[in-house]
Simulated assay, not measured.
Amino acid sequence: MSPRPSRVRRAWVWAWLERAQAALPLVALAGVAGFSWWLVRSSMVPEPSVATALKDDTADVELQHAELLRAGPDGRLAWVLQGDRIRHLPLSERLTVDRIRLHALDDTGRTLRAEALLGEADQRREVVTMRGDVQAWMRGPGASGTSMLLGEGLSADLRREVLSSSTPVVMLQSGSVVRGQSLRHDARTGVSELGGRVTGRYESAP
């Protein structure tokens, strides 16, 4: 397993997202808003040319150490998807990602950062599925603390701002540790629902 990004890099990415949302002019992003994906930086691995149309969901593009940006309808930066390797599957409009890193920021100030060994992004539904040593950090608008989520699987519905998992998870926040067999977290309401056998220690705010 490759080493995780340093705390300095994570802090830099967090700050970059917040600065970018406030600073990027709408005029400059007007042309980007009409596209679902905007390639920022990558090294492309050429695919062998084919004479016939693809009959199955074969990757048509592979990118190494790539970074993709998504802009909302108003041109504001919505989220950034990074990966050591990203492959595009044209028929199903999906991306498969090795060493996936996701950074999302909405117009109210809610933020999400998540990383895992593998990931898959559904471009039509704007759903990112992550698996393998998943770590996620969530922060509400104006919140002083950050919630951390650990598990082996996580699905992020970026359009509805809902996180869910059908596998065991651990949630940590301000000294509290809660474990559950499944999860549904609605970022808009701030409500987390844990299913199955739930255990842990909860410390209320002073």
Rank of each mutant, 00 (worst) to 15 (best):
L77P: 00
L77E: 00
A78T: 01
W79K: 05
W79M: 00
L81T: 00
L81W: 00
L81P: 00
I86D: 01
I86K: 04
R87K: 12
H88V: 11
H88N: 04
L89I: 08
P90D: 09
P90Y: 01
L91N: 05
E93I: 07
R94C: 04
T96N: 15
R99F: 08
I100N: 01
I100H: 04
R101L: 06
R101T: 06
R101M: 04
H103V: 02
H103K: 00
G109E: 07
G109N: 07
G109A: 12
R110K: 06
T111F: 15
R113Y: 15
E115S: 08
L117D: 13
E120D: 15
A121W: 06
D122T: 08
Q123A: 06
R124W: 11
V128H: 07
M130K: 07
R131F: 10
G132N: 10
D133E: 11
D133T: 01
Q135H: 12
A136C: 13
A136K: 12
M138P: 00
P141L: 02
P141T: 05
G142C: 03
G145C: 12
S147M: 14
M148D: 09
G151H: 04
E152H: 09
G153T: 09
L154T: 11
S155V: 15
D157H: 15
D157R: 11
L158V: 13
R159M: 12
R159G: 15
R159K: 14
R159P: 01
R160L: 13
R160D: 11
R160I: 03
V162F: 04
L163F: 08
S164C: 11
S165V: 01
S165P: 02
S166Y: 02
P168S: 05
V169H: 09
V169T: 03
M171E: 14
Q173D: 06
S174H: 12
S174V: 10
S176P: 07
S176F: 09
S176T: 03
R179A: 01
R179Q: 10
S182F: 02
L183C: 05
R184N: 07
H185M: 14
D186Y: 07
D186L: 08
D186H: 07
A187T: 08
R188H: 05
